[in-house]
Design a protein around this nucleic acid. Structure first.
Lengths: 275, 275
DNA sequence: CCATGTTATGCACACGATTACATTCTATTT
DNA sequence: AAATAGAATGTAATCGTGTGCATAACATGG
């Protein structure tokens, strides 16, 4: 049905091997036959069969990207960056959605292994992940993004969560704020625990006692930010400054403040961190 | 290196063909050997090589999804739905970004063809697209979503833009609003032109004259909504009701109204349509 | 003139699975 | 007992490429 190297070879009067070499820019092929073969390729509208090529070369030029949520601007902006870069370098990307679940993540990793991807980029859903060991066995390169996985060492692209938050808190303190509330994320994620760590360190270094009732932990989502801000504002003496550990929770928290403007005892200001 | 059917066959004392049949649930294989082969598969941790399988069967169980923008909640919500459904049915999805450009769209289509996908789902960037003809030639099934392409007939999932907008405008009229501004999208997209069509029809049916200066067209993005609402509010006699043809432009438009509350001559209400 | 090097190309097998066809074996029928 | 049918499995070709090795033609040097 489809045109193959053999068809091209026959038309050009050469062997299939020669056609293959032309396709792969083998320098040993003479300019003359190269030109002739190219013309035949054009004429027959030959398209290489990447499946066959991959079977032979063991390379798919495909990278898998697993993220916890697809309709999420933070993750998708990363996805776009990955896709742009890899495309320029001849690779393409399969974007998968682990759906915030370890089981989902495990399934996608399995899927991508079966798809024979050349490598994977993963934003882990938690710091637990023995399913990553499969990748070590199969010798598939992995790069983690934003979060780490325990007992699995590999390259990773991370935010300096601790120092980033430390600086933010330090800034507030230097501007005279001493009672700073904290709305953080899941402590099982490095992005959750490390940002909390930065908060704690800054307070400690400036001799401000940790005040448990103005510290709340959510799940990095809008709704969670809304609820935690509500809890925070409903205690007897709410803080006037609140540090929020990510963008989405900040949206929820802001929403609460706007909706309940008149209820607040005094103005509240918010500081957030990237991610 | 990797375990193949041959290795399993040798261990189980059968032929490679039998192993293949077990994998594919061929009913002719006796329960006994089936069980033995399965054990060997388990023991060797055999994983099928989908590349080889695809080469032989001409099926990849992969569907390509091309959308104009990846970090876009509207498109990604669709992507999630597609992925969920297809996964359940044994397929997986390659999500591509045409980047709002015809050239980008053409490239992705080419890419997916070379990847030998079994089919494609496309949200076209415009109503122009002769590059779609390639798919006809290669006999690759396509489903369009949200927008149509001229001179290319295939299945499509569409919103009833005309009647949807008609109803919205009708609703406003029935509630006593007679002067209704319109902020629409690119007329080269069906989602742009059809929604405008619905607006026009409703006005006509209720004998309300079309007033050009309160009709604006943008590009369905937030910024565009902001600017058009600005233009609309800066004319001498701005409309008190505005219909906005999609979600993102509505965000921008609302932003303008909130930021310029005090400037407005009177309250303005907004009605939007899905998508 | 022979030995050797260089260049251009062909041959044939391999990649790992699927599958049409052939074979073997057992059970049943005539 | 021979013939036949049916079930279970094996044999071998095939999918479309890539590539090590062999080959052939020609040039170069001694």
């Amino acid at each position: 049905m489809a045109v193959t190297v053999k068809d091209v070879a026959k038309l050009a009067g050469v062997s299939a091997a020669t056609v293959s070499r032309v396709i792969n820019d083998d320098p040993r092929i003479s300019e003359e036959t190269k030109k002739r073969v190219m013309e035949c390729i054009e004429q027959l509208n030959y398209k290489i069969n990447n499946i066959a090529r991959s079977l032979k070369t063991n390379k798919t030029y495909t990278i898998g990207f697993i993220c916890p949520e697809i309709p999420n601007e933070f993750f998708m902006t990363i996805a776009k960056g990955i896709e742009d870069w890899l495309r320029k370098h001849g690779y393409n990307v399969i974007i998968c959605n682990s759906n915030e679940s370890i089981k989902g993540e495990e399934e996608r990793i399995k899927l991508l292994c079966e798809k024979c991807v050349d490598g994977m980029i993963v934003i882990p859903v938690s710091n637990q992940g023995k399913h990553f060991n499969r990748l070590k066995e199969l010798d598939i390169p992995v790069v983690l993004v934003d979060r780490l996985v325990e007992n699995f060492t590999t390259d990773a692209v991370l935010i300096d969560n601790i120092n980033g938050c430390y600086s933010a808190i330090e800034y507030l303190i230097n501007h005279g704020k001493k009672r700073i509330g904290f709305i953080g994320g899941d402590l099982r994620l490095t992005s959750g625990s490390e940002r909390y760590e930065g908060y704690k360190r800054a307070l400690k270094d400036y001799c401000i006692p940790l005040e448990e009732k103005i510290i709340k932990f959510g799940d990095f989502h809008i709704q969670s930010g809304y609820e935690l801000m509500k809890e925070l504002m409903e205690i007897d003496d709410p803080p006037q400054n609140v540090f929020i550990a990510n963008y989405f929770m900040h949206i929820g928290a802001t929403k609460y403040l706007i909706e309940n403007k008149e209820k607040l005892k005094y103005p509240v200001s918010i500081t957030i961190t990237a991610g």
